[in-house]
């Protein structure tokens, strides 16, 4: 147990974007810490107490950096301090990666008394685990596993086992997000998901979601809010993990996910000649072809319109490449 825990935590230790971390009890007492600034503990503790009931994943902006809190199970909270420049989405994703490593590890509840932030606590935890396994299974574990359903967030601090991470979604500037089943709940004040969104993104989340209507793409949303697209994408990815919006999933080379991709289709890709040179330099015979090169018609369409054979059209197009004819690639519906 201790080995696995150490391994998971060492992932954080060797990440140069991580400034420090602390494994805390559910009341916010630091159990095992590494380079986590002491002065941040009170603030973290306050936040934990504030969201005691339904703490899921929370971020706190501090002058030291970005703190991401996430419950590991009913008893433990992992707190990581990232460098201030790190993107929120990335920080969350990194935390979730570590949580995934912690998933298989059976962490016993913390002892009643312990010295805060001590490295030796890992061994303490191990001995508790050994004792506990000798007396059959520990109550904690059965609690977490059995009561895992997406709705019972409050009770089982559901480890994101089946949960999708923001990295699972493929959102780019051209993606058109659609409203998902949780959309209206997310916009309802004081709903659980709304408070979670608020704690993560403040009012930014609300503003972006208002613009999600199934026809605006990410660029439009970002532009109309004068916000960087990266920030909008972060929020949308998070929203997608909560079912607030529907967005395409990352394809891992398999066909099964293609159906779920809902972003707008792009139509047929064609290449259309466009003449940008001087028409008076075009010889009379070629004029009827070149005149049609407006960047919107394909060579086939030009051949059809002029009733000339395709080879003749291609020949003419090639001839005028040096005097300002370009091929424009575009998609047509």
């Amino acid at each position: 147990m201790s080995k696995d825990l150490e391994r998971a935590l060492s992932k954080l230790r060797f990440d140069d974007q991580v400034l420090g971390y602390s494994l805390m009890t559910k009341v916010g007492r630091p159990f095992v810490s590494f380079a986590f600034p002491d002065e941040l503990f009170p603030r973290v503790k306050d936040s934990i107490n504030l969201y005691k009931k339904d703490l899921r994943l929370m971020t706190i902006d501090t002058d030291k950096g970005l703190v991401v809190l996430s419950p590991v199970d009913n008893n433990w909270i992992l707190t990581v301090l990232y460098i201030p420049e790190l993107q929120l989405g990335l920080a969350i994703a990194k935390t979730k990666n570590v949580l995934r490593l912690l998933e298989g590890i059976e962490l016993p509840p913390p002892p009643e008394e312990f010295e805060e932030s001590s490295e030796e606590n890992l061994q303490v935890l191990e001995s508790i685990a050994i004792n506990a396994s000798a007396v059959e299974e520990t109550p904690t574990i059965s609690g977490t596993v059995a009561s895992y359903t997406p709705q019972t967030i409050t009770k089982a601090a559901s480890v994101p086992v089946v949960e999708l991470s923001p990295e699972d979604f493929n959102i780019s500037t051209t993606t058109i997000p659609k409203r998902g089943p949780q959309y209206s709940t997310a916009l309802t004040l004081d709903s659980e998901i709304n408070s979670e969104m608020k704690s993560l993104y403040r009012n930014f989340g609300f503003d972006v979601l208002m613009l999600v209507d199934g026809s605006n793409n990410v660029t439009n949303i970002a532009d109309s809010m004068f916000q960087p697209t990266g920030r909008v994408i972060d929020l949308l990815k998070w929203s997608a993990t909560r079912g607030i919006i529907i967005a395409p999933r990352v394809v891992e080379g398999s066909a099964e996910q293609t159906e779920s991709r809902s972003s707008g289709s792009m139509g047929k890709y064609v290449k259309c000649p466009k003449f940008e040179g001087a028409l008076d330099k075009v010889s009379g015979d070629d004029l009827n072809i070149i005149r049609l090169c407006d960047g919107k018609k394909t060579p086939e369409q030009i051949a059809e319109a002029t009733s000339l054979p395709m080879p003749k059209v291609m020949q003419t197009l090639a001839k005028y490449r040096k005097s300002g004819l370009k091929m424009i690639g575009r998609t047509i519906k």
């Binding site: 493929n170 780019s172 051209t174 993606t175 395409p248 394809v251 293609t258 991709r261 972003s263 707008g264 289709s265 792009m266 047929k268 890709y269 998609t331």
Partner: peptide
């Protein structure tokens, strides 16, 4: 050309 004709959106392409 081939990939663009087989895919339905830009991310996929």
């Amino acid at each position: 050309d081939k990939i663009l004709s087989e895919t339905s959106n830009i991310d996929e392409a």
